[in-house]
């Protein structure tokens, strides 16, 4: 068994092409397996932690849906009190719903007390474990089972919650976004986060094959298009300052990203589709301006 296999897998039951497992493996390998994992309830937990079949080669705990931030804080406190900090870093893997919706209280508490925790939000932009219900990080226009497309409505109305700004506003020392399209960037950011004492937040864009309605081989392509359209800006903050962004060479129109996914396909035929595409393009343009993404 190679060392790569020993941190996560074999034995997980994720879909072929799952973005979560790509991100998770990269994070664990960047930390060389020297970590304690707290995982919220969700897809990653379900595909990896069945009794007698755990895929985890690192100490792992799953408690509840909404408390991974607090559980990680508790591990951090225990390691401190028991003088075992040198054993490894404390890492959270939590989905977008667990992070931005139901678990935002414990996450805010963990940030506020500045625990020495690397919080990884695996952002697949909906409650995918339960079959694609909208979360606070679902983008507008997305067709989910709780924001379905109908005669009147074109999928989700409203915005994707700006968790990066929420994290930065807590004054935590390191905040970044990343994408499974860029493995080396994930690893670099995780390694950097591991060097910094205090709370770290890294939000990784992780396409979901079933929820987004893409083929398993389109995971990386979808994630890359989200970056290339500026719908998913890849940014890095240290001590509240924007220190680095991933520039875009020739920014693509949002339609390039939308048209390959079933969750957005209705936007090209629905009476309000054009309006939503314009909203999404406006968000992308604002991202590009805000972070100075265009070369």
């Amino acid at each position: 068994m190679s060392s790569r296999m020993s941190f996560f897998g074999p034995g997980h039951g994720a879909c072929p092409g799952c973005g979560l497992t790509i991100a998770t493996r990269n994070v664990l390998e960047a930390l060389e397996g020297k970590c304690f994992v707290a995982n919220s309830t969700g897809c990653l937990e379900i595909v990896s932690s069945q009794y007698d079949r755990s895929a985890w080669g690192v100490p792992y705990i799953h408690s509840l849906f909404e408390n991974a931030g607090a559980v990680a804080a508790g591990i951090d406190l225990a390691l401190k009190a028991l003088k075992r900090k040198d054993e490894g870093k404390v890492v959270v893997f939590a989905g977008d719903g667990a992070t931005a919706d139901i678990g935002i209280g414990p996450l805010s508490g963990m940030f506020d007390r500045n625990h020495d925790v690397i919080y990884i939000c695996l952002d697949n932009e909906a409650y995918q474990n339960t079959g694609n219900q909208q979360s606070g990080l679902t983008p507008p226009g997305s067709n989910t089972t709780t924001t379905p497309v109908g005669k009147l409505l074109p999928g989700k109305l409203g915005k994707k919650k700006d968790m990066v700004s929420i994290a930065v506003a807590h004054g935590v020392p390191y905040v970044a976004t990343a994408s499974v399209a860029f493995h080396a960037d994930i690893r670099r950011k995780v390694k950097k986060a591991a060097e910094i004492e205090g709370a770290k937040y890294i939000q990784i864009h992780t396409p979901c094959v079933t929820g987004w309605g893409i083929d398993g081989k389109q995971t990386i392509e979808s994630a890359r298009l989200a970056y290339e359209t500026a719908l998913y800006p890849i940014v890095e903050y240290e001590n509240g300052e924007l220190i680095r962004v991933r520039k875009i060479k020739e920014r693509k129109p949002v339609e390039e990203y939308l048209k390959i996914q079933r969750r957005f396909r209705h936007l090209f035929t629905h009476p309000r589709g054009k309006e939503v595409i314009e909203i999404l393009q406006k968000i992308a343009d604002e991202n590009a301006a805000r972070f100075n993404l265009d070369i």
Binding site: I61, A70, V71, A73, G74, I75, A78, A81, G105, P106
Partner: peptide, 17 residues
């Protein structure tokens, strides 16, 4: 940040020994 958080912290701490 809440009793829910307090108990959750103790879950992590207790599991860590």
């Amino acid at each position: 940040e809440s009793e829910f958080g307090a108990a959750s912290i103790l879950v992590g701490a207790s599991a860590a020994g």
